[in-house]
Design a protein around this nucleic acid. Sequence first.
DNA 1: ATGTCCCTTGGAAAGGGA
Length: 266
Amino acid sequence: MVVVIPLQYKIASWNVNSVTARLEHLLQWMQDFQPDVVLLQELKGVEETFPFAAVEALGYTAAVYGQKAYNGVAIVSKHPLTAIKKGIPNFTDENARYIEAVVADKFTVASIYVPNGQDLDSEKFTYKMAFYQGLTAYLATIRTAEKPYILGGDFNVAHQPLDCYAPEKFKNRLLCSQAERLALQQIINLGFTDTYRVFHQDTRAFSWWDYREGRFDRDEGLRIDYLFTTPEATDLLVESGIDTLPRGLLKPSDHTPVWCTIVVSI
DNA sequence: ATGTCCCTTGGAAAGGGA
């Protein structure tokens, strides 16, 4: 007799805008939300300053790719992390924007922080497009990987008009331009799934609100944080969502956690 | 319309990035 035990894993992604400044929020949220895996972006610090002891006290382990002052990504997990990769393979980038690891020997997760791009006519925008090209080239190689793969992070693109509070105002502007939307679409075209939309097809929901102009209070935001799954991981999806609670706290990150749950049988 | 927050330098306030 074969006994199949289904195990659920809750995977979240959160751009914390400095892990040091957001430590209390992060720890409280982890205790309340109980994610199995948290993908972090914008640590804004080197690995030496990451709060390993604090997350370990809550029963988590962490893989960190840090950088002084800017960027920085991490994977925080209740389950063992192996096969850790820092940086997108075969893409040269001086910034710490991608980290990947296998969780519990069952599935692969990655945390990504895509460049903001500054302005459509800036050198930083060219870098953003090159970054997407490098990312897409890598994703084309791993989508046939044997383990389910989940890529979460700040993609700095609102995929569709529904993902923006003022589509007309943002038309052809940074985060909503044709070029950026096409770059994101190319990932979807490889077979990746935007896990939020699987369970919330027509919901206007956001993951980031500008600090200025009281944008959060007016719910004037953009959905620029995503969890993407390969077909093997999409098959395991049972739920997804956005937790807006942390964005309403005092001294919040400008982003809030996005999450999905998968079921894995052992 | 440039309104907020965080980091760094350098030891206060200002610039850069988002």
